[in-house]
Amino acid sequence: DHIPWITAVLPTVIICVMVFCLILWKW
């Protein structure tokens, strides 16, 4: 059976995008 890697990667991607947007917003 396949491991849904997207389910494991998606939260990390969302957190990175939120942090990236927060850094851009504070500049």
Rank of each mutant, 00 (worst) to 15 (best):
D1Q: 00
D1K: 01
D1T: 02
D1W: 00
D1A: 01
H2I: 15
H2P: 10
H2E: 02
H2F: 10
H2A: 06
H2S: 05
I3Y: 14
I3K: 09
I3F: 03
I3N: 02
I3R: 11
P4D: 13
P4V: 09
P4M: 15
P4R: 09
P4F: 10
P4W: 04
P4I: 04
P4A: 05
W5S: 03
W5I: 04
W5A: 09
W5V: 13
W5L: 14
W5M: 09
W5T: 09
W5P: 10
W5N: 15
I6L: 00
I6V: 04
I6T: 01
I6P: 11
I6H: 10
T7K: 06
T7A: 08
T7G: 14
T7F: 14
T7V: 13
A8D: 03
A8V: 13
A8L: 11
A8K: 05
A8P: 08
A8H: 00
V9G: 11
V9S: 10
L10S: 11
L10Y: 00
L10P: 06
L10R: 09
L10F: 03
P11Y: 10
P11W: 15
P11H: 07
P11Q: 04
P11G: 13
T12R: 06
T12K: 06
T12V: 01
T12Y: 14
T12L: 13
T12I: 05
T12P: 08
V13N: 07
V13Q: 07
V13A: 00
V13S: 00
V13C: 01
V13H: 06
I14Y: 13
I14P: 13
I14R: 06
I14H: 15
I14D: 11
I14L: 10
I14F: 07
I15S: 11
I15A: 12
I15G: 12
I15L: 12
C16Q: 00
C16E: 00
C16F: 07
C16L: 05
C16K: 04
V17G: 11
V17P: 15
V17M: 06
V17L: 06
V17T: 12
V17I: 11
V17D: 08
V17S: 10
M18Q: 15
M18L: 07
M18H: 03
M18N: 09
M18Y: 00
M18R: 05
V19C: 03
V19G: 06
V19Y: 14
V19M: 06
V19T: 05
V19I: 01
V19Q: 03
V19F: 07
F20A: 15
F20G: 15
F20C: 12
F20Q: 13
F20L: 05
F20Y: 02
C21V: 09
C21Y: 10
C21Q: 09
C21K: 12
C21F: 03
L22I: 00
L22C: 15
L22S: 01
L22T: 00
L22Q: 07
I23S: 09
I23N: 09
I23K: 12
I23P: 11
L24E: 07
L24F: 12
L24T: 04
L24N: 14
L24K: 13
L24D: 14
W25G: 10
W25T: 09
W25A: 13
W25Y: 10
W25L: 08
W25N: 12
K26L: 13
K26Q: 12
K26R: 01
K26N: 05
K26E: 05
K26A: 09
W27R: 12
W27K: 11
W27Q: 14
W27F: 09
W27Y: 12
W27P: 05
